[in-house]
Structures are given as structure tokens and as C-alpha cells.
Design a protein around this nucleic acid. Structure first.
Length: 806
RNA sequence: GCCGGUGUGGCGAAACUGGCAGACGCACCGCACUCAAAAUGCGGCGGAGUGAUCCAUGCCGGUUCGAGUCCGGCCACCGGCACCA
């Protein structure tokens, strides 16, 4: 008989909520603490997606199991609710974003509760709550005071469709990550956060945390450390031109220089440059290009030579031309390069096009055909004066030493990571708590005046000029300067949606605290997060940003650990039925509500975990869901009537019980949920052969409870076991009892499987060989042959090597 | 181009450290129950062959008594980065 999942699930969800079964208590010294974390959702208008239950169920299983193992577990949830989609929806439907958010959060809450997660609902955090964003603003102020937040005019990524400035991280393939709109460069004054000051530490401290390797590699690549030297080139204009190179050894091969079109020296040299018209025209062309066009590969190199100013190669005193080209980026290194066409393919192509000399300085290739770019450190230097005959490996430090002695250069480390563009010209974000005073300049607000609340405005429409809608609210904008008391104005930019999510995990520790981000006591008790699971797509955004904020908070003494997360794991995406990404346009989106209604939350939980390897993408299958429902029906059928008898294991099932306890426990810790479920299915199938005793059933239900908590609580009650299933101790197994007394081992002859024999476990090799040779099927292959050798793998296999004897 | 990852039945997938490839589930087939169907239970289920046996983990080669697993060389797909000096 199928069970009434709707009634049962509602019953237990209400019970857990009313009794606060999963409430976490700060400061429990009796138990070890365990703080698992999932990425809090953005409460979109579409509601919960089937993608959400995968990581949430996984960590819920871990949390429930650890709780049963005696840990003091805090498993929190919240909402990352600032952001563009809500604002756009509000504009379209003439609602206040706050009301849209409130409604969406209510919907998400009921959907999450419908899935039976063991969250501590008293710790819910909402990033748009003034009591929360007060502290987001507070952290920003601390960063400002430490010089980490600064305003700077710079070319920014401007989405022509959203009318908003984007962080580099939000530009994907030259288009806006959100809307796919065209992104162009625009000069704007922006608030920036100095994440690059933390680049080295963000890199180094990866060694001390337990992240899956893919995440570490991706972060390292994103930070992009490279070592080399800065070299000062004198110019005929008098100014020095500083460049960064990873190959100072090739300096003798530098035959020209290239500056990015935005380079500051161009303006300085304006009266010395004789072809200024051509230079201006090129600058104009470059600015007009979108990021997409500019970074497109395989296009021909363009550029213009600067006439009137030349650079001097410090190693040989030769005058070399300076070009302007957009293949040199303003934002990396010094915005200018020394070009070594013999050993850099881009420089080579440029030199070919403009007829510039190409000099070989490292032996090994044919620079008349292409640049020789090998990283072979044992290659020999040529045409390089005092470096001639040295290996590349020796030449690099030799050149750096030479430069340093002459004061012409120095060793230098560079990062690809850029500072974080932190301003958004939109309404639905945290106001930046800085005041612009005509007398005093930028002045931070007083901490006592936080939070700086978002005002109610009539229109949230972004402006074409790129100003925030807040700029129209004159009575909000106008204020007094905290420093001089004169008339001043609030900053009208808001923070990006990454702000609130950069520290939410600290707020969970003490969500109602009104004197600090969280009380010291709570932070000291719960830090660090023991296990954070989330999507790979957040590796270079949220994960990096939040590590940066956490390190800053560590530096100012707010948190006790250098790193926020001890362990990071990642889940694969849930794809549509055909293996394609789920999307509204494909019409293959699965709504978790439908599944819960049709099969129940326990079935959904079980299926989403059984679907395949947790780390890999997996396609949804409607029919496979039924298999999990069938499993629960079979469990129900076994236990819907009270089993009588003692609490011990039955003889027939004892071994299987111990094996399953071991398997399920190990698999949960290793996130192998699919095989844990398979093991429980196998045990259930066995119960259909050998009826479970009361003790068998009790342990089985305990194992199943993290996966399918509702049905288990109900059956637990039916069986009349004490307390809640969720509050039981996790079962122990006896290693000795998981071992078989007899083993069926494989018998190979010359490496080919020819049969199996049963032998006592751990028996002597000779016994196994004897048994193998006695097997009739094996005999067929060994008869009339000489046995050359036997190989025995204990409890696994015997391989008999024979040779036909004459 | 660079950095990751993946490739196993009709499908989702298992396989510890090199040791019986395909656990568990879906789909399918058969049987029982049923007037019948569904549901449920029991059994079968990589391919070829009557059979003994042979062939099978993307492709080619190697190491080994033995390779899905290790090594070398390819191919395909997915994800990330991409003129980073």
C-alpha cells in the first residue's frame, strides 16, 4: 500500500517547526560544533528551482547525520534579496521592490519548508533588511577607513541594455552576464574595493583550506600571479616609460614599445607628438569598440606609431619606436610593454605587419617563421651582450640584478586580479554610506547614523546618464557634512548584490545582534564554517569576494580565522530531461512543487540524491523518480504495522546491517549519496527475503532518516520507538561483523576468468590454489598443462599461469 | 590557444589502492494475482552464438600474470579563462 505522504509530511514539518527541533544553541561546550553552509538563494519571482534541492538536500543529510552523531549543528538559511531582477520586475509591475521581495521570500520559505530541511528558522537572514544592511554598510565604512574603498574615475564596463556598470566578473564573452546586452567602455567615477591588496594572501591561504582541487585551481588562475621585472625605458621626451615583463632575459630583443591607447603619457607628450591627429583617431577607434570586438582573437593587429618620441633600450642604448595598439591592455601591468617579436607571438605578428626588426635572443626556434616562445629554461641566450651563452634560467636573475644595480628596474610580481568595481547606479541595493561635501570632499558617515536607509522613490527607472535613481530624490540626497556641518550630498550609487553575500555567514552566528556584525562570543564559537557547498559558478565571484571580506574582518579583529570556510565542495547542475540546460525558453523546467505534490518531498529528496554523482551534472528523469517512490512504498509496506520482538538484529540480517551502517555513513561524508541510497535499497530487498526484526527495522529507519525524514518519523512512531527518529544516535557498526567468513573468489587461467570458488576468508594461498585447481571448469583449462606460476590476491582471486606440456 | 573535467548496457549509473565490469534504479520482457487493466510480488535483462566459447568500459599503442583504473599518443563533448606582456 502506498503511504499518505501529503498528510505525513505536513504533520512532521509542523512538529519540527513548532518544537524548534533543529534550533542551534550558541556556546554548547558539551558537544563539538558543526557549521555546514549552503549558498542562500536569490528569491526570484519564479520560485524555487529543482537546482536548489540538490545542494540543500545534500547538506541537510550531512547536517542531520552529524546531529545524530552528537554534534551541535547550526544549519542556517537566508535570502540574498537585493538585485536587478527584483528591481526590473518591480518597475514592470509598478510595485515596490520591497514588496516584491517580501512576497518572494514568503514563497521561498514555504517551498523550503515543504522539503523538510532541518534549518534553524530562527536564524533567517535577509540582506535587504535594514538591520542587516546596516552592518554591510558598517563593513564598507571600515574598509573606507583603511583605504580599501576608494573612488576613482576609470573606464568601466557599461551594459548598454541594463544601463549599469558591471564588474569584470559580470562580463561574459564581452556581453552582460545577466541580459546578454552589449558592453562598452565608459569613463566613470566609481567606488572600488582594493581586493588586489589581498591577492597574495588569497592565493597563499588556499594551501590551508580543504577545497576541492578544481576550485583552488580556478581561483589561482583568476588571481593570475606572474613574476618578472619592471623595466624603466628612458624616452627622447624625457619621461621614463615603465613596463612589466615576465621575460627580462629577452630585453636585448626588444625592438619597439607598445602603449595601450589609454596610456597617460600620450596626453603629456601631446605637444611633442607630430602625428597627433593619427594618434587621436586611433584612440577614438579603440574607445568605440565593445569589449567583445576588442578581445576577439585572430583579428589582425592594428596600431599607430608615435612620431616625435622614441624610447631607449637601456641594455644597448638603441632608440626604438613607440606604438599605440589595443592589443596592450591599460589595466594590466603598467599599460605598456616592451615588444620582443622574436619571442612573443603577438609582438611577432605586429612586427611583421609594421616591418619592425625581429631579433633572436634565445636559441631554439626559427624567428623568421614565428616567435620562439618555449618556456624551456635550459635554452641558451644569443645576441644578448653580457647574457650570451647563459641559460634562460640564469639570464633572468642576471638581468634583474643588472637592472637593479643601475636603478633601471626591479623584480616585480603582477596579478591578473583587478580591484573590484563596487558602485551600481541602481535603486535596489545597499546605499553607500559616504557623503560628498563641497568643502571636505568624501566623508564617511558616522557609525551611529547607520543604517542609511533606502528612501521611497517614485521611479526606479535607471537614467540614461548613468546616474542612480536615488539622485532624483533631492531631500534624501541633501544632508549635512558630518565633518564641517555644512550642506553636503549623499552618494547615490548603491552596492552590488555581491556585498550582502560577502559576510552573511557571519550574521547567521548571531542574526539579531544590534551592536556588531555578530557578538564576539557567537563568532568565536561558530567560526569557521566547517563545510560550505555551492556552485562552481561562484568560484571567482562570491567565493573570492567573501574570502576577501573575511580576511579584512580578520585584520580588524572581528573574526578569529583567516579563512571563512574550512572545506568547500561543489555540486553539478540538474539538467533537463534531454540533458540540456533547464530554461524557460526550452520549456523543460521542473517545478519542485509539482514533484512534491505528486510523489512527496521524501521522494524528491531521495531522487535528487540518487540521480548520479553529486559533483557531476545530471539530467532529470520523470520515470526514474517513480523508482524512488516505489522504494519508499516498499519501506512503508514493511513497517506500516508494528514489528514485535526484541531490539537485537536478526541472525539472517545481522551482517547486512553492519555493512549498511558502514556504507551509508562513509558515503554521506564522501558525498556519495547515490551509492548510500543503493545500499539501503539492497538492504530493503533483503528484508523482503528475510523479514526484519524489530532491531533491524530500528537501525534501518535511523539510517534512512536523514534522506527521507518524514516517512521515517511516521514509521518510527508507528513502531513505538522512543523519541524522534531525527534525534537518535547514529548507529555504530562492528567492523568484525561486516566481514564474511567465506569468500567467493575469481579463478583465472592465464589471466582469463574461468570460474569462481568459495574459500574461507583469509585462508592460506595454498588453500585457495588447491580449491581453484579442484574446480571442474578450471580443470578443463589446466589439464595437460604445466603450472608455471600461481598468483593469489587474498580474498579476491587466483590466477594460474600454465604452459601446454608436450 | 591555455586550464580543468568527462567518455562504461536502451537510459541514469556502480566498481576500495591494478584483481569476477555493469551494484542500485529506470525502461523493457516473462510469470503470478486479476474478468481485464493498473498496482504489487517473483524471475529475466551488455552483444554474438544451440553450445563450449568469443567480443565488450571513446580510438591507437604500451606496461603487467591481470588494465575501466597506470603510461604515451589521438578523438569527441562539457565547463572556465582568453591579446594578462
Amino acid at each position: 500500500m502506498a503511504y499518505e505522504f501529503s498528510r505525513i509530511e505536513k504533520k512532521w514539518q509542523n512538529y519540527w517547526l513548532e518544537n524548534k527541533t533543529f534550533k542551534a544553541v550558541t556556546g554548547d561546550k558539551e558537544k563539538p560544533k558543526f557549521y555546514p553552509l549552503v549558498e542562500f538563494p536569490y528569491p526570484s519571482g519564479e520560485g524555487l528551482h529543482v537546482g536548489h534541492p540538490r545542494p540543500y538536500t545534500a547538506m541537510d543529510i550531512v547536517a542531520r547525520k552529524r546531529r545524530m552523531q552528537g554534534y551541535n549543528v547550526m544549519f542556517p538559511i537566508g535570502f540574498d534579496a537585493f538585485g536587478l531582477p527584483t528591481e526590473n520586475y518591480a518597475i514592470k509591475n509598478h510595485m515596490h521592490p520591497r514588496d516584491v521581495t517580501k512576497r518572494n521570500i514568503a514563497r521561498f520559505t514555504s517551498q523550503l519548508q515543504m522539503l523538510g530541511y532541518s534549518f534553524d528558522w530562527d536564524r533567517v537572514v535577509d540582506t535587504t533588511d535594514p538591520d542587516y544592511y546596516k552592518w554591510t554598510q558598517w563593513i564598507f565604512l571600515q574598509m573606507y577607513k583603511q583605504g580599501l574603498a576608494y573612488k576613482m574615475s576609470m573606464p568601466v564596463n557599461w551594459c548598454t541594455s541594463c544601463k549599469i556598470v558591471l564588474a569584470n566578473e559580470e562580463v561574459v564573452n564581452g556581453v552582460c552576464e545577466r541580459c546578454g546586452g552589449e558592453v562598452i567602455k565608459k569613463e566613470k567615477s566609481q567606488w572600488m574595493l582594493g581586493i588586489t591588496k589581498y591577492a597574495q594572501r588569497l592565493l597563499d591561504d588556499l594551501d590551508d583550506v580543504d577545497y576541492i582541487e578544481r576550485v583552488k585551481i580556478q581561483q589561482r588562475n583568476w588571481i593570475g600571479r606572474s613574476t618578472g621585472a619592471e623595466v624603466d625605458f628612458a624616452t627622447t621626451a624625457g619621461d621614463t616609460m615603465c613596463v612589466f615583463t615576465t621575460r627580462p632575459d629577452t630585453l636585448f630583443g626588444a625592438t619597439y614599445m607598445v602603449m595601450s591607447p589609454e596610456h597617460a603619457l600620450i596626453e603629456k607628450w601631446a605637444d611633442k607628438i607630430s602625428n597627433m591627429d593619427a594618434v587621436r583617431a586611433y584612440q577614438h577607434e579603440a574607445a568605440k569598440k565593445s569589449d567583445f570586438e576588442r578581445t576577439e582573437l585572430n583579428k589582425e593587429k592594428t596600431g599607430v606609431v608615435i612620431e616625435g618620441v622614441r624610447a631607449i633600450n637601456p641594455v644597448n642604448g638603441e632608440e626604438i619606436p613607440i606604438f599605440l595598439s589595443d592589443y596592450v591592455l591599460a589595466s594590466y601591468g603598467t599599460g605598456a610593454i616592451m615588444a620582443v617579436p622574436g619571442h612573443d607571438q603577438r609582438d611577432w605578428e605586429f612586427a611583421e605587419k609594421f616591418g619592425l626588426p625581429i631579433i633572436e635572443v634565445v636559441k631554439g626556434g626559427d624567428v623568421t617563421k614565428e616567435a620562439y616562445v618555449s618556456k624551456d629554461e635550459s635554452a641558451i641566450m644569443v645576441n644578448s651582450g653580457f647574457l650570451d651563452g647563459m641559460t634562460v634560467k640564469a639570464a633572468i636573475p642576471a638581468m634583474i640584478k643588472w637592472l637593479a644595480e643601475k636603478g633601471l628596474g626591479r623584480e616585480k610580481v603582477n596579478f591578473k586580479l583587478r580591484d573590484w568595481v563596487f558602485s551600481r547606479q541602481r535603486y535596489w541595493g545597499e546605499p553607500i554610506p559616504i557623503i560628498n561635501c563641497p568643502k571636505c570632499g568624501w566623508v564617511p558617515m558616522n557609525e551611529e547614523d547607520l543604517p542609511l536607509l533606502l528612501p521611497d522613490v517614485k521611479s526606479y527607472e535607471p537614467t540614461d546618464t548613468g546616474e542612480s535613481p536615488l539622485a532624483h530624490m533631492r531631500d534624501w540626497v541633501e544632508c549635512t557634512c558630518p565633518k564641517c556641518g555644512g550642506p553636503a550630498e549623499h552618494e547615490t550609487d548603491t552596492m552590488p548584490n555581491w556585498a550582502g553575500s560577502s559576510w552573511y555567514f557571519i550574521r547567521y552566528m548571531d542574526p539579531k545582534c544590534d551592536t556588531a556584525v555578530a557578538s564576539k562570543k557567537a563568532i568565536d564559537y561558530w567560526s569557521p564554517i566547517d563545510w560550505y557547498n555551492g556552485g562552481m559558478e561562484h568560484t571567482t565571484l562570491h567565493l573570492l569576494y567573501s574570502r576577501f571580506w573575511h580576511k579584512f574582518l580578520y585584520d580588524i579583529g572581528v573574526v578569529p580565522t583567516k579563512e571563512p570556510y574550512q572545506k568547500r565542495t561543489s555540486h553539478g547542475m540538474i539538467l533537463g530531461e534531454g540533458g540540456e540546460k533547464m530554461s524557460k525558453s526550452r520549456g523543460n523546467v521542473i517545478n519542485p512543487n509539482d514533484i512534491v505534490e505528486q510523489y512527496g518531498a521524501d521522494t524528491l529528496r531521495l531522487y535528487i540524491m540518487f540521480i548520479g554523482d553529486f559533483e557531476k551534472a545530471a539530467p532529470w528523469s520523470d520515470s526514474a523518480v517513480k523508482g524512488c517512490k516505489r522504494f519508499l512504498d516498499r519501506v512503508w509496506a514493511l513497517a506500516e504495522k508494528r514489528i514485535e520482538g526484541g531490539e537485537g538484529y536478526s541472525k539472517a540480517n545481522e551482517k547486512a546491517m553492519h555493512k549498511t551502517i558502514k556504507k551509508v555513513g562513509d558515503d554521506i561524508e564522501n558525498m556519495k549519496f547515490n551509492t548510500a541510497i543503493a545500499a539501503m535499497m539492497t538492504l530493503t530487498n533483503q528484508f523482503y527475503e528475510s523479514a526484519p526484526s524489530r532491531g533491524d527495522m530500528k537501525t534501518f529507519l535511523t539510517l534512512l532518516s536523514p534522506f527521507a525524514p518524514h516517512i521515517v518519523e511516521e514509521l518510527w512512531e508507528i513502531q513505538g520507538f522512543d523519541g524522534l527518529a531525527s534525534s537518535q544516535s547514529w548507529p555504530e557498526y562492528d567492523e568484525a561483523k561486516t566481514l564474511d567468513e567465506e569468500k567467493e573468489i575469481a579463478v583465472q587461467v592465464n589471466g582469463k576468468l574461468r570460474g569462481t570458488v568459495v574459500v574461507p576468508a583469509g585462508c592460506e594461498d595454498a588453500v585457495a590454489v588447491e580449491a581453484a585447481l579442484a574446480d571442474t571448469r578450471v580443470k578443463k583449462f589446466t589439464d595437460g598443462c604445466a603450472i608455471v606460476k600461481t598468483i593469489v590476491v587474498k580474498d579476491k582471486l587466483v590466477n594460474i599461469i600454465v604452459k601446454p606440456s608436450k
